[in-house]
Nucleic acid binder design. Structure first.
Lengths: 191, 191, 191, 191
DNA sequence: CATGAATGAGCTTTCATTCAT
DNA sequence: TATGAATGAAAGCTCATTCAT
C-alpha cells in the first residue's frame, strides 16, 4: 500500500474515532483497529497519539478556514457574506469537526491550546477586518469590532455546538437566516 | 479542622487544579498537594477523582444558574434583563468556571456529558421562555426562539471563552453593552 | 466499661467477623463496627489486626485441646475414648472454629503457621501417645503410630470441614459412630 | 518466545510464588520478577492476579482428579483401588498442590470457594459411588457412604497436609499401606 | 516496511495504623 | 481513656511507546 495513502487512511480513521470517543477515551488500539494495521505501523507514520491529533486538528482548522472566500468589494457584498456564512456553518456542522475542534481540543495540552488560540485569533482577525471594512463602507454600525467579532463567532458556533450535544439535526439555512436577521435588526423591537 | 471546612478546602483546591491543568492532567497527588493533606484523606471526603469533579461541575452550574433572577413583569423590564446579563457574564467570566465548565467538562464521560446537556438545556429553556414572553409583550421580534436562544447564548459565552483562551481581561460592562446593542439593532446599518 | 470486659467484647466480635468473612476480607472497620467502639480504641486493647487474630487462634486451639480428657487406665477405656471423640467433634464443629482454625489460619504468615504447626503437633503427639498406650495394652494393632494418628485426625476433621464448606448440619453422634466403626473394623469386608 | 510457552512460564512461576507465599502476600511484582518479564506483559496473558490464581487452582484440581482411573469391575479390584490411591497421594503430595489447594484457596472469594466446593463435591461423589458399588459387590461394609467417603478423604488428605506443614517428606507407599490396613481392619484389635 | 509482544512509568484507590484532641 | 480524622505505603492495573523479528 502506498505510504501516503496509508498515512491518509490512518488520519481518516483516527479522525473518526477521536470524533466518536474523544481524545482521552481513544487508545492507539482503537485507531489501528479501525485502519486494520498493527500498532507499530502507526508509529511509522506518526510520532505519537498526540501528533495525529494535532494534525487532525490542523486539518480541521484548515477545512474551516478554507471555506471563507475573500469578499470582492466591487461585487454586491451581502450575497458574498451570506455565502460565506453558509459555507462556514456547513463546515463546522460536520459532526466530527464540531466534536473535535470545539469539544475535545481544548485542554489537551499547551500546544493544542496554542493551535486553537491561533485558529480563533485568525478567524477573529478576519471577522474584525470585515467589520472594519463594513464600517468604512457605512454598512456596519460603528463600535468595537473586537467584541462584535466575538459575539458573531458565538452566534455561529453555539447553535452548532448545541445541536451536536443534543444529537439533533441543525437546519443550516434557517440558522444563517436567523443570524442575518440578528445582524440586521437584533432581536428586540424598537422602542 | 472542621470536616465541612476541610471538604470545602479540598473542593476549592481541586477546582483550582482542575482549572489550571484540566481533568486528565490532574492527579490526586496534585489535589492533595495543593490542600496539604495526605492521599488517604482525600478519599475520606470524596469517593473518587471523578466525583470531586462532578461536584465542582455541579457547583459551577449552580453558581451560574443562580445569578439569573426571574423577571418581574410589573417592573420595568430592560434594567432587569440588563442586570441578569451583567451577573451572568460576571459568573462565567470567573476564570475557573470558564475553563472547567466550557473547556474541560465535555468528553470526560457519559455522566459529565449528560450533566452538561442538562445544564445547557435548562439555560436554553429559560432564555427561550424569556424570549417567548418578550414576543407576547411585543418587545421581542417574532421568530423561532430555539435558534434565537442559542445565538444569544453564543454571544454571551464566546467572548468570555475567547478572553480566557487569550488570557485577556474582559470588560464585562462593555460586553453587556455590546450584546444589548446587538439585540436592539443588530450590527448592520439599515438599508 | 471494664477494660477486661471490653477486651473480651472485641475478641468476641472479631471472632465473629473473622469467621464470617475470613481474615483478609475483614477490616478493622468491621471489627470496631461490630463492637461499637472507635478505631483507635481497638488499638488500645490490641497491637494489630494480626494480633487479635493470633489471640483468637490460640483461644480456639485451647478450646479444642481442653475438651480432651486424659484417659484413666484403671477405668473402662472405650467409653472414655468415645467421650473424648464426641467432645472433640463438637468442639471443632463450632462453625467459627472450623472456619477460622481450619480454613483461614493457614497462610496468613509464618507466625500463624507456626502456631498451627504447634497445635497439630501437640494434638498428634497426644493421639500417638494414646495409640502407643493402646498398643501396649494390646487394644490397638501394632504399626507406625505417626501415620495412624494423622489418618485419625483426618477422619475427624474432614467431615467437619466438608459440612462447613457445604453449609450443612453435621450429625455429631453419627460421625462418632462411623469413626468408631472404622477404627474397629475398617470399611472393607474381610476376605 | 512462543506465546503459549510464555503463558505457561507465567503460570508456572505464579504457581511457585503462590505456593511459597500464599495468595495475599504475593504481588504481581513477585510473579513478574520470577518470570523475568515486565508488569505489563503479565496482563497480556492474564486478566488479573485473581484470574491466574483461578487458573492455577483449576489446573491443580484437574491434575488431582485426572489421576483417578475408573475401576474395571471385570478385573481384580484391589490392585486397581490401590493404584488409584497411590496416584492420588502422589498427586496431592506435590508441595504446591497441597499448599495452594488445601491451604490458600479457601477464603479468597466466593468464586474460589465455589470452585473448591465443586471439586470436593465431585471427589466425594466418586468415592461414594465406589463405596456403593463395593457394598453391592459385598466387599464394603454397609453404612452411610456420605460419612465414609468424608472420613476416607480425610485419611488421605490429612497426612499429606501435615507433612507439608512440617516440611517433612512423606512416604507415599507407607501411607497407602496404612490406609489400606485401616480400611481393611481398622485400628483397634477385635474385642 | 510491517508486526505485535514487550515494556514500565504512572495512575487511582485501599486500609492498617497513628495521634492530636 | 476514647475518639475518629489523618496518614502514606503499597497494591493492582493501564496504555502510549519501543523494538526484535
Amino acid at each position: 500500500m502506498d505510504p501516503d495513502e496509508r498515512r491518509q487512511a490512518i488520519l481518516v480513521a483516527a479522525r473518526r474515532v477521536f470524533a466518536a470517543q474523544g481524545y482521552h477515551r481513544t487508545g492507539i488500539a482503537d485507531i489501528v483497529g479501525e485502519v486494520g494495521i498493527a500498532r507499530g505501523t502507526f508509529y511509522r507514520y506518526f510520532e505519537s497519539k498526540r501528533s495525529v491529533f494535532q494534525e487532525i486538528l490542523e486539518e480541521m482548522m484548515t477545512e474551516v478556514v478554507s471555506v471563507v472566500q475573500p469578499i470582492d468589494v466591487l461585487a454586491p457584498i451581502p450575497p458574498q457574506v451570506l455565502a460565506n456564512l453558509d459555507r462556514l456553518v456547513r463546515a463546522i456542522t460536520a459532526e466530527d469537526v464540531c466534536r473535535v475542534l470545539f469539544g475535545e481540543a481544548l485542554g489537551i495540552d499547551g500546544e493544542a491550546d496554542e493551535a486553537l488560540r491561533a485558529f480563533y485569533g485568525g478567524a477573529l482577525a478576519r471577522i474584525e477586518a470585515a467589520l472594519r471594512t463594513g464600517q468604512a463602507l457605512g454598512v456596519v454600525r460603528p463600535g468595537g469590532v473586537g467584541l462584535q467579532a466575538r459575539c458573531l463567532l458565538g452566534m455561529l458556533k453555539e447553535p452548532v455546538v448545541q445541536a451536536t450535544l443534543d444529537r439533533q439535526e441543525l437546519d443550516t439555512e434557517q440558522l444563517v437566516a436567523e443570524i442575518l436577521q440578528l445582524l440586521r435588526h437584533g432581536i428586540l423591537e424598537p422602542g
